[in-house]
């Protein structure tokens, strides 16, 4: 399935702009101005307008309400631990000592690993899908990639738990760890199946469809004239691809940030493969924990108010991180798509 963001972006070209969507509810619109003398209809229209505006605003209200509720319910923890919560490294539900640094670290590191692995692969996939494959195959291949986005997170977790993690531990990690481990300390042995690295790998797989779908749209929007210009200069396909990538740079950046947003908030698959150990591990092949994972894992066990409040505060931190990333990503993606449309029209 296309997740909503891809859906929106790939159908964006189908919206025709305002000429097909006249804002005819406006009472002042000249073509319909005559209707103002029929008060009964105006009342209906006005009610509907306000109602629609109110309901439409619910998506904004929900976000503000979410912030309010999370702050309210984490008050207890905020008051008790203050800012120390963010860099505290203890998580002790018995003596009520809570700090979230290892969780924040786990979230950021798994997301970073995911981006490092997923971005190059996604760009490769997007280049093939936009310009370097026979046209008649493209529909089918894009569909396959999009199906990857349709598989629920918990199914990835199941697969990661029983298949991916053991394979990585037995066949992939040992050679990497024994060769690079002496140069790069965070890759040193021993390797454990359920580890930060496995969390990053499963996240990478999950965000490939997101990143590749948006970059594909950005690549496809590179004007033919630009590609022909460089091809006529005797560019190879690699040189053509470089031009396409540099033209669509902002699209790649937007897609990457969106992928980051998704990785940061992804819960189930990571929870099932990361090992859920509350510490900042010395290597990436050791277990870790993320903000989303600890909420999923401990929320129903938290019976004391302060414990629950600490978990909700973790949710608040996650909320803030996700909000910033997503607001930023949407701005960039919008701007890049606008730029492409402008260029195409030209």
């Amino acid at each position: 399935m296309k997740r909503p963001s891809e859906w929106r972006l790939s159908t964006a070209s189908l919206s025709y702009g305002k000429e097909l969507a006249p804002s005819f509810f406006y009472p002042t619109t000249p073509e319909y101005g005559g209707r103002r003398i029929m008060p009964k209809e105006i009342t209906g229209d006005r009610v509907f307008t306000w109602l629609a505006a109110g309901i439409g605003s619910s998506v904004i209200i929900i976000i503000f309400l979410m912030a309010y509720e999370l702050i309210k319910e984490s008050r207890l923890a905020i008051d008790k631990y203050g800012l120390g919560f963010v860099w505290g490294t203890t998580w002790d539900p018995v003596f009520f000592e809570f700090g979230a640094l290892p969780l924040i670290w786990g979230t950021l590191v798994t997301s970073a690993i995911a981006l490092l692995l997923a971005v190059p692969v996604s760009i490769g996939v997007a280049l093939v899908l936009s310009h370097f494959s026979p046209v008649r195959f493209r529909f089918a291949i894009s569909f396959l990639v999009e199906l990857l986005a349709a598989i629920p997170s918990v199914v990835y977790g199941l697969w990661g738990l029983f298949t991916l993690a053991p394979i990585l531990r037995d066949y992939i990690y040992p050679p990497i760890s024994s060769t690079l481990g002496s140069v790069v300390p965070i890759l040193a042995p021993p390797v454990i199946a359920y580890s930060v690295m496995t969390g990053g790998v499963i996240l990478a797989i999950m965000i490939i469809p997101t990143i590749s779908a948006i970059t594909r749209d950005a690549f496809a929007a590179v004007p033919l004239a630009q590609r022909e210009a460089v091809i006529s200069l005797g560019a190879t396909r690699w040189e053509t691809a470089r031009l396409v990538m540099s033209y669509a740079r902002s699209g790649i950046i937007g897609a990457t940030i969106l992928g980051l947003g998704r990785a940061v908030g992804e819960t189930m698959a990571v929870t099932m493969v990361i090992g859920n150990r509350f510490e900042i591990p010395s290597t990436l092949f050791q277990p870790g924990y993320t903000m989303a994972a600890i909420i999923a894992n401990e929320f129903t066990e938290a019976t004391e108010d302060i414990y629950l409040s600490a978990l909700i505060e973790v949710g608040l931190v996650l909320f803030a991180v996700a909000l910033v990333i997503n607001m930023f990503a949407q701005i960039i993606v919008r701007r890049s798509l606008k730029m492409f449309r402008g260029a195409v029209r030209e």
Partner: peptide, 20 residues
């Protein structure tokens, strides 16, 4: 904000449903 909400972590939405 609709687009921001689309991409929002579902676990946070769950916590919001819990608190409210």
């Amino acid at each position: 904000f609709n687009d921001v909400l689309t991409e929002f972590p579902s676990i946070v939405i769950g916590v919001f449903a819990y608190t409210s």
